[in-house]
Write a protein that binds this DNA or RNA. Structure first.
Lengths: 226, 226
DNA sequence: CGCTGCGTTGAGCTTCTTCAACGATCGTGG
DNA sequence: CCACGATCGTTGAAGAAGCTCAACGCAGCG
């Protein structure tokens, strides 16, 4: 497995090349087709994955089949690590959103390595901490904001990730965005339409242009409503 | 600072006494009064805390003052660690719910120690992983379940934590329980009353008795409604 | 005694979901 | 090449869930 690919991940950044070599030796590259399940919620978690290519989603399903996306992952991002350290089953399901590959690291092999390399442990702590922070924001959004507020927050975040660009391309379907925001496509569609009508954004298929950043920011923090 | 107290925490369990001694030397015991703020969301996170006594809550506030409790903490539980590893500010606020004390560990001191003691790192990874799992369940609850389902889930969890006891004592006020469940006291009150009317539970002040465990389990997973 | 925090209940209203229908796009197989 | 089904997105009408606002009882405590 290519050491360079591993080094590109935040999880393995800054590690000694000798360690990367060891990691590469225990990694197993797996292929996934669009829609293929990586693991289901509750499956025994004997290791974790690192995305090599393609995109993957981590999600929860309700009794009646509604989906809540917890995480969207691209190249270099790990998933399924929680099960490694709790020593139990996966707390959510994972699925490939498109054709792609992921490295698999078996728990025992990985734990052996992490126990001897403090900077790997520190990197992993940083990854888990970032995730916790993100989850805390998600909980805040779901419980304290209405859908327009969550959407505004998300759009501003997207813009930030692209150096403040006003013109954004949704890289996921609107149905998936709805699932990420904890709502349903119909509601999202209505709210996008309303935001457009009121001049906050401009819509054009999968393109969204931020037309009133201050207004969106006020929506995001709940200072105003639409 | 007492080494025994530190050793009782899951975070420091199984560590070499010599390391506990080092930890004890960098720990700083702070006192808090009921209602006192430990840190606000956004404060610079220069270290983390470990509860010695009393209870603390971690929470988010909305623009108009509504509160979402993320976490309730008792003796031996750490909080504020996320900021240590993301190197940034606290992602939520912390407050003492009653008179209590907490050890404070400064970031730099702690990072020095954790980098030399793999089992401390592994413990910390386990703690963060458990939290992530809990947050994932919270997100699932908020987005995929209605209030009766969340309440049922919580009651069953409480019962599990007490070896399956049917008679539970709420250790927090109902207003705080509402905040933990992502709702408001009025709604919680109504749903408790309805659950009692329909025979799922029996109410008596702060005591709740599980009268129909199977029914509650079906409520919890969303199989039935009330 | 009066105050404050906690809990409950009622009425009205907002938000969101459900259910249904429909247009557009796209890939596939006949 | 066209027809078909599937996915995606949008819109409307109706209903459910939960929130807001208000009032009130009750207990603990200065």
């Amino acid at each position: 497995m290519s050491v360079q690919e591993l080094a590109a991940s935040p999880l393995f950044a800054g590690l000694d090349p000798a360690y990367l070599e060891k990691l590469a030796r225990i990694a197993l590259l797996k292929k996934f087709e669009r829609g293929q399940t990586v693991f289901a919620e509750g499956d025994p978690g004997n290791g974790f994955y690192l995305v090599q290519s393609g995109r993957f989603k981590i999600f929860k399903l309700s009794f009646d089949g509604k989906e809540q996306i917890l995480h969207l992952l691209g190249a270099g991002e790990p998933f399924g690590e929680v099960a490694v350290f709790t020593g139990r089953s996966f707390p959510a399901a994972a699925e490939a959103m498109e054709k792609g590959r992921a490295f698999f690291f078996a728990r025992d092999d990985f734990v052996r390595l992490i126990a001897t390399e403090p900077s790997l442990a520190m990197n992993m702590l940083a990854v888990l901490s970032m995730r916790l922070k993100k989850f805390a924001q998600m909980i805040e959004s779901l419980s304290l904001k209405e859908v327009p507020g969550r959407l505004a927050t998300h759009l501003l975040l997207l813009s930030d990730q692209q150096d403040g660009a006003a013109r954004l391309r949704l890289s996921i379907t609107k149905a998936q965005l709805a699932s990420l925001l904890g709502t349903i496509p119909e509601t999202l569609s209505r709210i996008l339409a309303k935001m457009s009508r009121e001049g906050f954004i401009a819509l054009d298929g999968p393109m969204i242009t931020i037309a009133n950043r201050e207004g969106l920011a006020e929506l995001a923090m709940g200072a105003i409503r639409i």
